[in-house]
Computed example of a mutant assay.
Amino acid sequence: MNIKQYLDSTYLKTAAQANITEEENTEVVKKCIQEAIDYDFKLIMIRPDKVALAKKMIQESNSKVTIGTVIDFPLGDGTLDDKLREANEAIINGVDDLDYVVNYEAFKRGELDIVKEQVLQGTKLGLENNKIVKWIIEVAALDNHQIVQLSALIKNIVIANFSEKEYEKVFVKSSTGFYNTPEGVPNGATVPTIKLMLENSCPLPVKAAGGVRTYEEAVEMIQLGVKRIGTSAAKAIANGEISNSDY
């Protein structure tokens, strides 16, 4: 198993969140991009304002690493126009994967028309530009029934509006890694939540994001059936080490 080709190496902290300067944060991003190139990970996942930097570094290295970014992150409560504007800019800058945050609070309020239209139009924009699209449902904000419902909602929209050959390009993704949970409660992927997602999003692929920090945990997720793993511990996973990473 080439585990590196499942790994979306991730760094999504702003300078303020990392408690460092903008310049220092850019250097951290550069280091993460270079690490993804050196280790030949599947993808480097960074904030939208760093997509052009990643594109430049990857092209200069003649690397096959792809570039992902997050849209309407981390809350997902922007308007449809907000989402599409941000996604369009990332496309212009050379992104490969668009990881949108679903408006999960609107979903929880029963405002399904908002959610359906955002998923439809966001997916349409990505696929029309030959991008991979992922929808982050934020499992830590949902109960099991809601995880089932939201995974199925995304699946049903894709099946109803896009061709079968495009299903593999639209993922359901577990988490942002930024959701605040009570102390000790996971805010990322867990085996039970991933099982629910896999059962209810099929035939769409699933990305397990957050909480996968060791080679063994990554293998377990892959054996369950996930196609991608989002983690800030990609290097440790690839080396068979244990990481104290928070995502």
Rank of each mutant, 00 (worst) to 15 (best):
N103F: 07
G188F: 05
A234V: 07
T66K: 14
A15S: 14
A87L: 11
K235N: 05
K116S: 11
E199N: 15
A87S: 15
D246T: 13
G211L: 10
F107K: 07
I37V: 05
L75F: 14
Q118S: 10
N144E: 15
A90H: 02
L12T: 11
E164S: 07
I159W: 10
G184H: 11
K83N: 10
K64T: 15
S163W: 00
A16I: 11
E216W: 04
S175H: 07
L43G: 00
E166K: 15
K108P: 00
K116L: 09
Q59S: 09
Y247G: 02
K227C: 09
N129H: 15
V226K: 02
Q5K: 11
A234P: 07
I242S: 04
N129E: 15
A238R: 08
A141N: 13
E220M: 10
N25R: 06
Q146A: 05
I46A: 07
S201M: 12
E216T: 08
R47I: 01
G210C: 11
F41T: 15
T66G: 02
S245W: 03
D49I: 00
E128V: 03
L53N: 02
A209N: 10
K50Y: 15
I159Y: 09
I194W: 03
P203F: 03
A141V: 03
L53P: 05
Y6D: 08
L98E: 08
V102W: 00
L84K: 04
K131G: 04
L204A: 04
A18T: 11
A218H: 11
Q59W: 02
V70Y: 02
N2M: 09
G210L: 04
K195Y: 00
A209S: 15
A106S: 13
E138A: 13
N62D: 12
S243H: 15
T10G: 01
K13S: 07
N239R: 13
I137P: 01
M57L: 15
E168A: 12
K31T: 14
K155G: 02
L43Y: 06
K116M: 14
D113M: 10
G177F: 06
N93E: 08
I229G: 12
K55Y: 03
